[in-house]
Design a protein around this nucleic acid. Sequence first.
DNA 1: CCTATTTTTTAGCATTTACTAATATTAGTG
DNA 2: CACTAATATTAGTAAATGCTAAAAAATAGG
Lengths: 106, 106
Amino acid sequence: METPEVHNLASDADIERAARCLKAMSHPLRLKILCVLSTEKMSVQDIVEKVGTSQSNISQHLAILREKDILNYKKDANRVFYYIDDPRMLKLIEMMRLVFCQTPTF
Amino acid sequence: METPEVHNLASDADIERAARCLKAMSHPLRLKILCVLSTEKMSVQDIVEKVGTSQSNISQHLAILREKDILNYKKDANRVFYYIDDPRMLKLIEMMRLVFCQTPTF
DNA sequence: CCTATTTTTTAGCATTTACTAATATTAGTG
DNA sequence: CACTAATATTAGTAAATGCTAAAAAATAGG
């Protein structure tokens, strides 16, 4: 009996946090946004063009990522530039690429 | 539109696949199930005890993970043992642990 | 067969999600 | 100020999700 409970995402708090983050990443458009932003800071308009859906839709997805602290942003005059601040998030995205793309993985 | 576009989860197909997988992992109970199974094969009953919700609920979550090919299973008499088959999935879970737990982040 | 145990499936319902269309806000420009 | 461009917000609606409770399958043992 593991009394001290080791289910290796240590605590339930960790689990909740991770699940919330995964959920935020688990929509195709949001994942694509993250991929696009993993290499460069970008304005909403640019994201709209790269990702391809309505401006309103992108904005709503950006809001979700923003609220979950997955994206950060900086206003510049008329425009808003979004970017990924947290190195852990970058690492995670890189990991996804490793796992989900045409990869020999090991 | 799709110019030779590198948004680094290579294709939209990759994105869809990754998003579907992430979505499957993005529920606290399912994530906990995955964590628990990342070290050992386990019967449904054992998972119920480790994870903690109704048996029916666990079974439904297992079905979701199974249908997305995230979990594999083996029947043994009365019982069904679930396990993670894909080494990429194991790698991903390990990654989550690195990113979401008491982490040095790098 | 009858029964007990383990697991899956189903039904019903409340909640959340995602989208479109329309409107509002913010900032720059003439 | 009026006008335009960029972004955010709101409202409405259709679909998906997650849960509980109840019923069904599957398997083993007497």
